[in-house]
């Protein structure tokens, strides 16, 4: 058995009303079980498109996605999605608890098991006492935490997150990043996290895939060799963090200018330890 998620030669062309947009040209990558992989790319480079193809919500024009060896042709039961637009992803006519429970009902779980999962998921995102509230009674960051709880309760093999924190304020965002990393370490879930924010990608990921601008290919694969224990205060000022983010930044800038990638794009790059500038 190979990787948990295998994306090969993925291509997506939107056709319609005389316009032809090649959103994703040729993407190949894998995600191993238990990994936290970040995809980072400039705005509009097809990140959402890619993730929807992976999640079976969009049919790719060419290429294949397989999850645990089975090709994905519709939303597979082992996948949960956290969307960019949290405000429109929760159902406003249901209370928080019912929002988290609905997918579990659909799975056919017993009432007691559902109750356990809902309580546990809400507790791990710190919203144990919000089950009776409506989503619109909560702040943006809390709503996104409900969406994360819904995904957790679903017990997916892989969690897909599409710029989940793009629309919340900086402080909330930092908290949510720590929440995701904490959940990943505690529960050993597999996460594919998409973002346009370089710092976020480097801070969260164990591996970062840098995407080029549209038409999109994987420009570079980068292993993030920061310690597993990360925190907002120290990790972000660590010299290694600065090197990694600078490297990713340069890659994205080069991608925008259209310079070819320095390394063959199917090998994992380890950034050489450059001497830290002491001036």
């Amino acid at each position: 058995m190979g990787a948990l998620l295998d994306v090969s030669g993925l291509n997506k062309v939107y056709e319609g009303s005389g316009r032809r947009v090649e959103a994703v040209r040729d993407l190949t990558f894998t995600v191993e079980s238990g990994e936290l992989v970040c995809l980072v790319g400039p705005s509009g480079c097809g990140k959402t498109t890619l993730l929807k193809c992976v999640g079976g919500l969009l049919a790719p024009t060419a290429g294949q996605v397989t999850l645990s060896g089975r090709p994905v042709s519709g939303p597979p039961p082992g996948m949960a999605f956290v969307f960019q637009e949290y405000g429109r992803s929760l159902f406003p006519w249901m209370r928080v608890g019912d929002n988290v429970e609905l997918p579990l009902k659909q799975k056919g779980l017993s009432k007691s098991r559902r109750g356990e999962l809902v309580d546990d998921a809400l507790r791990s995102v710190g919203l144990a006492d919000a089950a009776g509230a409506y989503p619109w009674q909560l702040s943006g960051g809390m709503q996104q935490r409900v969406a994360i709880a819904r995904a957790l309760a679903y017990e997916p093999e892989i969690l897909l997150m599409d710029e989940p924190f793009a629309a919340v304020d900086a402080q909330t965002r930092a908290d949510l990043e720590d929440l995701v990393r904490g959940l990943w370490r505690e529960r050993g879930i597999t996460i594919l996290f998409v973002t346009h924010d370089i710092d976020e990608a480097v801070y969260l990921g164990e591996r970062v895939l840098v995407l080029s601008g549209s038409p999109t290919v994987v420009r570079e694969r980068l292993r993030i060799d920061l310690p597993a224990e990360r925190d907002q205060l120290h990790t972000r000022v660590a010299p290694r963090f600065a090197e990694l983010r600078t490297h990713v930044y340069e890659q994205i800038q080069a991608a925008k200018r259209g310079t070819p990638a320095p390394e063959p794009s199917d090998r994992i790059v380890d950034v050489e330890d450059r001497p830290v500038d002491k001036s």
């Binding site: 939303p75 999605f81 969307f83 637009e85 992803s89 006519w93 609905l102 659909q106």
Partner: peptide, 24 residues
């Protein structure tokens, strides 16, 4: 976005009608 959320969690058919479409 709600429709895609429902789809990604396998909420289809009668459950989708009752919990998503008619409520919305």
């Amino acid at each position: 976005v709600m429709a895609e959320t429902a789809r990604s969690y396998g909420i289809t058919g009668a459950a989708r009608l009752r919990n998503v479409v008619l409520r919305s």
